[in-house]
Nucleic acid binder design. Structure first.
Lengths: 338, 338
DNA sequence: TTGTACGCGTTATCAT
DNA sequence: ATGATAACGCGTACAA
């Protein structure tokens, strides 16, 4: 910039003024400066600008597991919206590992991001302390944090799972296995609550032995399903609390020599592009990924531009039950135990 | 830092020395300073540090489509390795859109990233000019750029597709449809070359009407497959040049009232976690995602720490044909046209 | 071993 | 309308 100023024989202040339009500059000078910029090939230094202004036009995006197609899609749209608004995105993912999560949030804050969008791996005290300490615009997505009162966009998990469970109940199932996500997450807890609520509505008892924790991962879900299926009175249906786990569920069913939906009905949280293509066509709860991403990005953008209300905004979207062919009426499942 | 210096009644230079270990400091002073740091809660400002040192400890990661599970996995491991090395990751994805790609690379360079890892959307002149102009450590992944001579880690695409095609040929297929990726990418071109090579080895003519461009996207692949299947002499087998497209292929087969593998055999580039679970179990070419990500990260890390050789390193990994059940011998496909 | 002073590239303030 | 200069927070050369 100094070079430009010299080349146009003006002061750096004037150069800055034309670049940022922060002060009126006479047309002749403006032209001379713009030409000098071209000639020199000057580009302003974002680092120096950040140092001076205290902003980086960068937001930190931390999700528990980018490998999960749900998060992938959300990340893609957030990134898109943010880029259009001139913001860069720093990505962190931690494989649902809470310790790694703590390091990553530090990394982000260290880099002076202007805001944070987080889908937390677990309800971690350290994380909450760091977030509070950073005092940055923050929006939580998918998963809430107990006692953290920020902008957020989440799903009505309870309602969605309740509907799905009710649907299975309506098909005549009485022993519905449930593969849960980590109860350290709000989604894990709320989804399970939805399952319980449906049972209660149907005046059926909640049985611990039908519920296994799968931690949102395929491997854990596989083991959990194996246990469920090996029990004396095995479930006639299984609900998986997310997309990754249903793969484990299906593998377990296959490995134990059963078939879906003939022997056991299956439904799952999260829809897939291919749920409709491969057999069995899976019955799922579809989340409005596009909307979630857009809203989250908009929330942080509003907060960043200071046009958000002082009180946090909490958006709750609804899931949609996609009924396909992986659940059958019990009357049609000959090998089910009456 | 000034505050810390005051609190410990030493100079900033000494504080800097203990923080960076750049100069010997007496134990007593060191202790006093470290305590002051604790008390004040001092954290060094990465922006100021970047301005001074000219490095950001951040690498830009730009992939054509994060929504593609292959890229997702690679991104996840790159992110992991880089974080462990203390580097932040700026993520960009552009939906295979070349114009957006140009803007994103500018964004990254603007933010003064120390290095670039790129899976380019297309062989774009602007992109190449920008990369060359930036003069940054760069590693290309998955897709090469004509005339850009940097570190890279790619697959032996030609060989992999040749093997897969040969396998289908061995099953008796003579009309093998090919849904290609964009020929603006090296993977698109090399994979098609593999198909051609197999045909040639089998002394079969290459027929334009059996090949359609699907641009690596589901929708385009769907249309392409529809055309292929509607033709008078429809193919008895179809190869899809990536994972996203095979979903379009399967949907088209379903919508046109055919079945895989009974009526048409299918194989695809890129493996899925669920390829083994849902029907038909898909025959695929598995890429060593973990290795690709690790190598790419290591390449840039080496380059960044200046311990790379001057000449670019080009790593070529091998794919693995995962034979499952989506391809049948022609003798078993009654509806195939002889 | 420790302290002072300067420079990194911007922008904002103030004076002209 | 334009220019001079301080300040952002750090690292480091050089002096003590």
């Amino acid at each position: 910039m100094l070079d430009v100023a010299k080349a146009a024989s003006v002061s750096v202040a004037t150069v800055s003024a034309v670049i940022n339009g922060s002060a009126p500059v006479s047309p002749e000078l403006r032209a001379r400066i713009e030409e000098a910029i071209q000639v020199i090939g000057y580009k302003r230094n974002a680092i120096a600008r950040s140092l001076k202004l205290g902003i980086t036009r960068t937001v930190g995006l931390m999700v528990a597991d980018i490998t999960n197609p749900f998060f992938t899609d959300v990340v893609a749209v957030i990134q898109d919206v943010l880029h259009r608004a001139g913001y860069a995105v720093m990505l962190c993912c931690n494989d649902e590992d809470v310790e790694m999560q703590d390091e990553q949030i530090e990394l982000l804050i260290d880099r002076s991001v202007d805001g944070l969008i987080i889908a937390p791996a677990g309800d971690d005290e350290t994380l909450k302390r760091i977030i509070a300490g950073a005092n940055l615009p923050t929006v939580l997505i998918d998963r809430l944090l107990d006692g953290v009162d920020t902008d957020a966009v989440v799903l009505d998990n309870r309602r969605a799972v309740q509907d799905a469970t009710l649907y299975m109940l309506g098909l005549g199932h009485r022993r519905i296995g449930y593969i849960s996500g980590s109860l350290d997450t709000s989604t894990g807890r709320e989804r399970l609550a939805g399952y319980k609520a449906a049972l209660e509505a149907a005046k059926l008892p909640y049985e611990d032995r039908l519920v296994r924790i799968g931690n949102f991962r395929e491997k854990d879900a596989y083991k959990a399903t194996m246990q469920l299926l090996a029990s004396a009175e095995r479930p006639t249906a299984i609900f998986s609390a997310n997309n990754l786990m249903v793969i484990g569920v299906m593998k377990a069913i296959r490995d134990i020599g059963l078939k879906c939906p003939e022997d056991v009905s299956v439904a799952s949280f999260d829809d897939f592009p291919w749920a409709d293509v491969f057999q069995p066509h899976l019955t799922t709860i579809a989340q409005p990924v596009q909307a979630i991403g857009e809203q989250a990005a908009q929330l942080i953008l509003d907060r960043l531009s200071g046009k958000s209300p002082a009180t946090p905004r909490r958006l709750v979207l609804q899931g949609r039950l996609m009924i396909r062919e992986s659940c059958r009426p019990t009357s049609l499942t000959p090998r089910a135990i009456a």
